[in-house]
Amino acid sequence: MTFSICVREEYEDEDGTDQLRFGVAVTTRLPAVGTLCPFASENGAVATQSLVNVELGERGIEYIDDGLAVDDALQSLLNADDGAENRQLHGIDADGTFTFSGEECKGWYGHLEGENYTVAGNLLTGEAVIENVAETYEESDRDAPLAQRLIDALGAGYAEGGDKREELHVQSAALKVRTTEEEEHSPYYNDLRVDATETPIQDLRETYRLAGDGFAEAMERYQDAMEDDDLEAAEDDE
């Protein structure tokens, strides 16, 4: 009922220090997928879907944060899950990737992985959906924000047909981006959800645009006050 992508990217911050960023994005023909499927931290990204077991995502990220490799973390959780054959689970950490699609997932279902990403989907119109997601991400401009490129990747899968259940009109989409870089203020546009809509990609893209504008406006107006931890000073300037 879902397709999603998890990615890892290396980059240099403004000081020339090597950093990692992780992202996960997902869409489905059900409401509020952002509460169920995507998980990310500065150490990795995980997506849990099909017959969702949220604990696989929650504990998967916890295990990765504790230093367990992504394949060991997620496989150990599946080994303890009696419903594993109904699950799709995939993710990435600093060193590796993991993909799993249980044999009882509903077709079309499947997954693929590249050097620095994983993609999976079920109840799709066909394999081309996840292939388009992967191709669009691979060809994306790395100078553009990751959140924007994740939306583009979802959009490519959606345009190819996406979730095949056209009778379900209420849809949703979500994304999360985390980084090893110590950010003084986490950008609003790196953790977004559209919980109930008939146009999930369009609405997530517009939410991303507005969140970016709002973050810039807030930094311009309140940055000094936030640095001084003194909101009253900002209110005095209004």
Results as ranks from 00 to 15, higher is better:
Asn122Trp: 08
Leu78Val: 06
Leu124Gly: 08
Gly83Glu: 09
Glu85Phe: 00
Arg221Pro: 04
Glu85Val: 09
Tyr188Gly: 02
Glu127Gln: 07
Leu168Gly: 06
Ser50Glu: 01
Val70Cys: 12
Val52Asn: 10
Pro31Gly: 00
Thr125Met: 13
Glu115Lys: 15
Tyr137Phe: 14
Pro187Gln: 02
Lys106Phe: 13
Lys176Cys: 04
Thr207Lys: 14
Ala153Gln: 01
Ala159Asn: 11
Ser76Gly: 15
Leu68Phe: 10
Ala196Leu: 02
Arg59Val: 11
Leu30Ala: 13
Thr99Ser: 08
Asp163Lys: 14
Tyr208Ala: 05
Gly16Val: 05
Ala173His: 04
Phe3Thr: 07
Arg21Lys: 15
Asp236Val: 03
Phe3Ser: 05
Met219Pro: 02
Gln171Pro: 02
Glu135Leu: 01
Gln75Trp: 10
Leu112Asn: 03
Met219Ser: 11
Val70Arg: 09
Gly155Leu: 00
Asp224Phe: 06
Tyr117Thr: 00
Asp191Glu: 15
Val33Glu: 12
Ser172Val: 06
Tyr208Trp: 15
Glu183Arg: 14
Gln75Val: 05
Ala225Asn: 08
Gly126Asn: 02
Pro200Leu: 09
Arg149Gly: 01
Ala80His: 05
Asp236Tyr: 09
Glu9Gln: 15
Val194Asp: 12
Tyr137Trp: 15
Ala156Lys: 03
Gly23Ile: 05
Asn116Tyr: 04
Ile130Phe: 02
Glu182Gln: 14
Val133Gly: 01
Ala234Ser: 15
Asn190Val: 01
Glu184Thr: 12
His185Asp: 05
Glu217Asn: 12
Gly96Met: 02
Leu124Cys: 03
